[in-house]
Structures are given as C-alpha cells and as structure tokens.
Simulated scan of single mutants.
Amino acid sequence: MKNLIYVALLGLLIYSCGTMRDRDLRSDEIANAENDTVRIANDSLEYEIIIIEPGFDLFINTIAKPEGYYSQEYLENKNRFLVSDYNNRVHQPQIYNPNLYVQEINYDPSIDYGYEVNYLLYNYFVYLSRQYNQRFSVPTRI
C-alpha cells in the first residue's frame, strides 16, 4: 500500500511537470507579457524592434551571454541567416506554427542597426530556439 502511494505521487509529479509549449495564451498571460516587452527605436534611422515574448526579458537578463560577448560583425552575420530562415517560416504557415512565426522581420544587412539591436535580435532567435525547440539553419562558419 505504501509503495502504491509513492508510485501515485511520482506519477502526479511527472504529469505536473509536463511541457505546455503548444498551448494558447490566456488573457492573464497576455497581460503579463507587457512586462516582457523589449522595445528599441531610433527615429533618425527609422527603425524599431519590439519583442513581445513571455519570458524573454528574464532570458536576456539571466541566461543570455552579456552584451559585448559577441562582436557586432558576428551578430550581423548570424542575424542575416536567422532572419532569412525566420521569414521563410512566416510564409509557410502550413508547415510551421503560425503562432510562433507571426510577422515577417524587415532586416536589411546593408543598414547599420548598431550593436544593441543586433544583440537583442540574435538573442531572440536563441530564446525562440530554446523555448520552443526550434532549429534554424545557420552556417556554423561564416
């Protein structure tokens, strides 16, 4: 009898730790997402990056490599391929989850967006790949 209780508790623990990555956001989660909004804008260059993703703010402040870890050239090269792959997924909603790939990213590699934008954009892709188990096709050597 004692072992049956332990097995039931273990089963309950495993069930409660299950992943929930394919769920829709409830309204209270959407309200909490306002705290996870990262916005960077530069009116002189007329660009803006807004990342609204629950947990991204925590990721960028705790898990992501610190600013300055990567060079701007490295980030720009990675972002060129990551944005291209991401935009391809936006245009294929029958293959890729349209809740993850909502809107196309307008990233022009010929524009100098600066370090901060490239850093946050790159880390968004890192977060997306870790949080939702997505794999992007980026060459290992650029």
Rank of each mutant, 00 (worst) to 15 (best):
A8L: 15
A8S: 08
L9E: 13
L10D: 07
L10Q: 10
G11M: 13
M20T: 04
D22L: 06
D22N: 15
R23T: 15
D24Y: 11
S27P: 01
D28K: 10
A31I: 13
A31N: 08
N32G: 04
A33C: 04
T37C: 14
R39M: 10
S44L: 10
S44Y: 10
L45V: 02
E48L: 08
I49A: 10
I50L: 10
I52V: 10
P54Q: 12
G55D: 05
F56S: 02
D57I: 13
L58I: 05
K65I: 04
P66D: 03
P66E: 09
E67F: 08
E73N: 07
Y74G: 00
Y74I: 04
K78I: 06
K78R: 10
R80N: 08
R80S: 09
L82T: 04
V83E: 02
N87V: 05
N87A: 11
N88C: 08
N88E: 11
N88G: 05
V90I: 10
V90E: 02
I95H: 00
N97D: 15
P98A: 05
V102Y: 07
Q103T: 12
I105Q: 02
S110R: 06
Y113T: 04
Y113A: 03
G114F: 09
Y115I: 00
E116S: 15
N118T: 05
N118W: 01
L120P: 00
N123D: 07
Y124V: 08
Y124M: 09
F125C: 04
V126K: 09
Y127I: 07
R130S: 07
N133T: 14
S137I: 10
S137C: 01
P139F: 08
T140Q: 11
